[in-house]
Every structure is written in structure tokens, then in C-alpha cells.
Design a binder for these strands. Structure first.
Ligand SMILES: [Mn+2]
Ligand SMILES: [Mn+2]
Ligand SMILES: [Zn+2]
Ligand SMILES: [Zn+2]
Lengths: 151, 151
DNA sequence: GCGGTTGTTTTGACTAATTCAAAACAACTG
DNA sequence: CAGTTGTTTTGAATTAGTCAAAACAACCGC
């Protein structure tokens, strides 16, 4: 499974190699898919790549995502009530809005500038690495459907 | 299972009744346990009450916690990588620090005053109800153990 | 206090999401 | 091009939680 190597930069492959990982077809497929469909679950990704790569298994996808996350290539995000999602946007301290009805996820840039939420008022002796902010709400579609149902 | 009724106020029972729920032994046990051990998981709670109430099942605990959460008596919290936790502190917009190593959870009072993180910079048309802030870090114990292992 | 109604718990099965481990395999190094 | 090492496949197991029917108990009114 090697593309015409040595010619174009082939960004995804370089990113994987730069992370100290071997470049493989399933890994390229997962990374490509994740670029086009951020906040996908492992199962979403498996469904998205299985036609192009028959013989691929969910376990492979889980393994790939773990490796990517450990290498800092992707970020995990656990919305309440749905399986873990993954995305390529890393290291920019952005947050998420989740629709409590349909579980849709949208990115939210950090509210108060750079890394605002990173200082808890009292850290109880913890060393804090990161702050995850998750807004719960209703997406536009679900607002409309709720308006219909209610009243 | 009726205590000497009509004498003392019996706070937990009143809280349950005020929420429009019937007062039962397992419900009292769960609420009591949750007061003494906030951020417990369903399984934690089951383990904590099963000796006092043999014959209780995990399903009962799950049912009780769902009813309590729906009634606003308890709050759920989903730390990444561990089962859902529950607590009695409700309606005060407080947040959490989670130790990424041992999964310990601590409360953090809201950082910037009242309800700071409640305004996303761009809400994409979402109506936002609440903001969950989760700080990831290392607890004191895990810092020390990490210091030993590393260097 | 007694019985009926309704909400709660038990019992038992089942699903979804994820993890573990051994063997087969393929990418990269020299 | 062969060896080494990391990756994927295959197959099974586990964890966390859900669903549904039947047994049961709290609470209301009498
Ligand atoms: Mn995102
Ligand atoms: Mn708390
Ligand atoms: Zn929605
Ligand atoms: Zn810890």
C-alpha cells in the first residue's frame, strides 16, 4: 500500500511519521476521515473507512485512535451520553457545545482569550494540565422540533 | 420499613418526598451514602449499601439515581475514562478536577464569580443551558508517585 | 388500621462501548 | 532484501448501562 512516494509532501503520512508512528493504510484512512468529519466516534470512523479498506476491524480503529491520541495527533472528547469522539484540532484549547437531544457537537473557541479556564480557584494540591469546557444546550433543529412538540 | 415517624424532621426523607418521589429504604440509603461519599459511581453506591440492604440490586441503584437526577435531587457527572459519578451538590454551578492517573475527583468552586463560563464566544445557534468545566490534572499522591518513577 | 392504586424494586436478560491477548502480518532499518 | 519491531487481525471477554415483566410496598382515602 505505498503511494507514489518521494514526489509530493503527502501531509497526512508526514504527520504520522513525525509522531514516531509507522505509516499504514488504515492509519492514513482514519486520519483522512477525521479531517473531513471531526468529532467522529470510533464506530463512525470504522463505518467510514470499511468500504475502502475491507478487512479492517473496529479493534484496529480503536488501536489507531489510541496511538494517535497518545502521540498528540488527535484529541479525545467524551460527551455525556455518547461514545468518545475524536478530532484533529489539537493544542488550541477549544471547547464544545453538545446538543442534549440529538448529541450534535460543535466547536467553540475559547471564551476569555487564550487559556482562561485553566486556573481553578482552589486546586486542592492538584497540578492542572488542561480544562475541558462542555456547554450543554439545544441545537437549532432540536429547538424547532421542541417548539412544535411543546406549547 | 417505617421509622419513628412524626417526631424528628428526617431531612433525607423530606427531600425525597418534596421531589415528588416515594420514600423507600433503598432510596434513603442511596441518598445517605451520597451525602457521605460524593462523586460515587452507581457501583460504588451499590457496594456501599448492599450490606445494610441485602437483596438490593445494581438495577435498583441505577433506577434510583435516574429518578433522583430527573427530580433534580442529584447531579450526574461523567469524568473521562470512568463511570458516571453522582453527587448531592446541585444547582451551584461548581466544577471538577479529575486526576488523570487515579481518577480521583475534587470539587472546584466556580472560577470567575457566578456563572462565567456560561457564555460561549459563538454558540452556532445553540441555546445553552449549562457549562461543565472539567480540569484534568494530577492529584498530590500521584504527583509524588510520578516523581519517584520518573527522573 | 385496611385495601386499592400507583410507583418502585426485583429478577433476568440483553446491548453498546471498549479492552485484552495471541498470532499473522507489514513498515521501516541497514 | 531480510530482520526487527511495531501494527493489525482474529476471537473472546469485560465493563457500564439499559430494557421489560412480574413481584412488591408506599401512600391515599375511607
Ligand atoms: Mn472540537
Ligand atoms: Mn462535585
Ligand atoms: Zn440537536
Ligand atoms: Zn491521583
Amino acid at each position: 500500500m505505498q503511494a507514489a512516494a518521494g514526489m509530493e509532501p503527502d501531509l497526512p503520512a508526514r504527520a504520522i511519521r513525525a509522531a514516531g508512528l509507522k505509516v499504514t493504510a488504515p492509519r492514513l484512512a482514519v486520519l483522512e476521515m477525521l479531517r473531513g468529519a471531526p468529532h467522529s466516534s470510533a464506530e463512525d470512523i470504522f463505518a467510514g473507512i470499511r468500504s475502502a479498506l475491507p478487512g479492517t476491524s473496529t479493534q484496529a480503529v480503536y488501536g489507531i485512535l489510541s496511538a494517535f491520541a497518545a502521540a498528540g495527533l488527535v484529541r479525545r472528547f467524551d460527551p455525556p451520553g455518547s461514545p468518545t469522539r475524536f478530532e484533529c484540532r489539537v493544542g488550541d484549547n477549544h471547547h464544545h457545545i453538545v446538543c442534549v437531544r440529538c448529541r450534535a457537537v460543535r466547536d467553540v473557541d475559547c471564551v476569555v482569550g487564550q487559556a482562561p479556564c485553566l486556573q481553578p480557584s482552589d486546586d486542592s494540591g492538584f497540578v492542572v494540565f488542561a480544562a475541558e469546557v462542555t456547554f450543554n444546550g439545544l441545537c437549532k433543529t432540536c429547538q424547532e422540533q421542541a417548539a412544535h412538540t411543546e406549547v
